[in-house]
Amino acid sequence: MKVKILPFLLVLLALMAFAPKPKLTATKLAPNLTVGVPATFVAMPDAGIAVKYPAPRKPLAVYTNPAGRVDFSVGTRPTTFESMDYGVLIKIYKSSIQRLYSKVEFLKEDIRTVNKRDFIFFEFVSTVTDSKRSGQLAPIKKYQMVQYAIDKQQVYIFTFDAPAEEQAQWQATAQAVMDGIVLK
């Protein structure tokens, strides 16, 4: 049985290697930060950000697909940590992610280098369930890819999220976006 699966997996892997790369537009967000935004995404206006991302500290930028179901956001927060603390921070950030959602299925977690910069990286599917006794709302499941990087007492948070049922459609794009971050 395993012998029959191996050739199939090799063919599938070869086909994926030649799949077209998502088209990204280089976008400068700060003097030291350039990101690759999917060509079909548009910048979300401030009013849309205030509704979809209500928080005291507005994200640096949010880009969304034409349907408004898939977002790429960039935020910053002050920090006293340094990049040499990534080994400890990966545990802290993982715990924070787990507290945000009813259930989290981590697909990948790592400290990785992108464009000569180290990032804390998570890929996961999150679920939020209605915790009220009378609540009959269906769970909300999202596919997410998140990277954190520290630069000059700031932590940069890069988040790509899509509906979980669209994971296969958006996974390569999310990876390309995360690989396109240039933080000098």
Score class of each variant (00 low, 15 high):
V74E: 04
G135E: 02
L12W: 01
K152Y: 11
S83M: 10
P7Q: 07
V74C: 07
V128K: 03
Q175D: 11
F122Q: 08
R69P: 00
T25W: 00
A43P: 05
N115F: 03
K52H: 01
A149E: 06
K91S: 15
L10T: 00
E109T: 09
L9R: 11
L24I: 05
A39S: 14
L24Q: 06
F122M: 10
L13G: 01
K4V: 12
V128E: 10
R117T: 11
V182G: 00
G75M: 11
L6M: 07
D71K: 07
L12E: 02
K103V: 02
F122C: 12
M44T: 06
K141I: 00
F41R: 04
A164D: 03
K141E: 05
G75P: 10
L29Q: 04
D46Y: 05
R77C: 01
I90Q: 14
L9M: 15
D151H: 08
G75S: 15
I150L: 08
K58V: 14
I111G: 07
V104P: 06
T159S: 14
T27H: 01
L12M: 06
N32F: 13
Y53L: 12
N115K: 12
A174G: 08
T34S: 09
F158C: 07
I150N: 04
K94H: 10
K4G: 09
Q144Y: 09
M84K: 15
A149Y: 09
A19H: 01
I111S: 06
Y53G: 07
T159F: 14
K184V: 04
E165V: 12
L100D: 06
R133K: 14
K184R: 09
L9F: 13
R77N: 10
Q144E: 14
E166T: 00
M178F: 10
V182T: 12
A50Q: 10
K2V: 11
K108G: 03
F41M: 06
L13M: 01
L12A: 12
Y156V: 06
V11C: 12
L183R: 03
I140F: 05
S96D: 09
T79G: 09
D130R: 15
V35F: 00
M1G: 13
A39N: 10
N115E: 01
L24M: 03
Q167S: 07
M44K: 03
